[in-house]
Design a protein around this nucleic acid. Sequence first.
DNA 1: TTGATATCATTTGCATACGAATGAATTTCC
DNA 2: GGAAATTCATTCGTATGCAAATGATATCAA
Lengths: 153, 153
Amino acid sequence: MSGEDNLLKLVEAEEADGQDYLLQEQVGFILRKAHQRHVSIFAARIGDLTPPQFAALAKLRDVGETSQNQLGTLIAMDAATVKGVIDRLKARGLVELSRHEVDKRRLLVNLTTEGRDAIERLIPLAREITQETLAPLTNKEITTFMRLLAKLA
Amino acid sequence: MSGEDNLLKLVEAEEADGQDYLLQEQVGFILRKAHQRHVSIFAARIGDLTPPQFAALAKLRDVGETSQNQLGTLIAMDAATVKGVIDRLKARGLVELSRHEVDKRRLLVNLTTEGRDAIERLIPLAREITQETLAPLTNKEITTFMRLLAKLA
DNA sequence: TTGATATCATTTGCATACGAATGAATTTCC
DNA sequence: GGAAATTCATTCGTATGCAAATGATATCAA
């Protein structure tokens, strides 16, 4: 190898910040793929409801009637997004809306009887979805992974 | 507590499969939040390009000219999604399109000079984005987390 | 060689997802 | 009490993300 070659490599090593950047090893890229896989598993088991719609119903089951914005906070959706989700659940008769008596800005959301039936019926399927999503890991790995994932979220 | 109360609890315990289902502990929900956080970090550091757009450019830098579909496979996007991403990159002059000479179905995608400059310039920022996303973890935790996440994706 | 299949790309429709702007109602604070 | 700031909801625009249908081209197989 010539002296010029060595110099070239040196210059490259100094300048080429992106020389060994591998997209497929970046956490964001893999996170996106893992999420994709989960959504796909979800769709295979619960075809007529999306994960965000399920999340809204499940959280309403936990907390009972709440404002649309508050529900959005609880399920990590901004106001614009949660509105669309609730609109579609309302169109299907799974939630009902009403105005807060005192604070007239607030739009209260609650499960209908049908919505409550639906979420109770779906929760066992949701458990299976969680299991299938985590199936590539051992029980010990699952514990570790969930602990670290929670730190990132 | 009356006998009726005990009977009621028993019936509830038998029927209520979803009694202790906690949305905020489900892997899908936390995965979605972790992904959201990453996208938010990305947007703060690279405001004028989305993660999918960045992924397309970074992968084109790796593999050079490819068909649109093939690029989609490499960055985990279906045909409909990758089309939109490439259209927007083309509108900004970061990629150029051409027809495959032999197989006239294929739409070849390649970086323009401007696109190559952009991705080289952005890769150092992307490294910082990865770092910031993983900042809540120690180095050892990062190694573990990436190994397990890869298994799920 | 040609008929069946498969592949590549496009389009449409629907569902998140979020920033920014807007309007209505409430709270804060002087 | 009233102006300023905040909160709640809506709307608009843009960008994924995917299923399904369609059209063009290529490949395979009888």
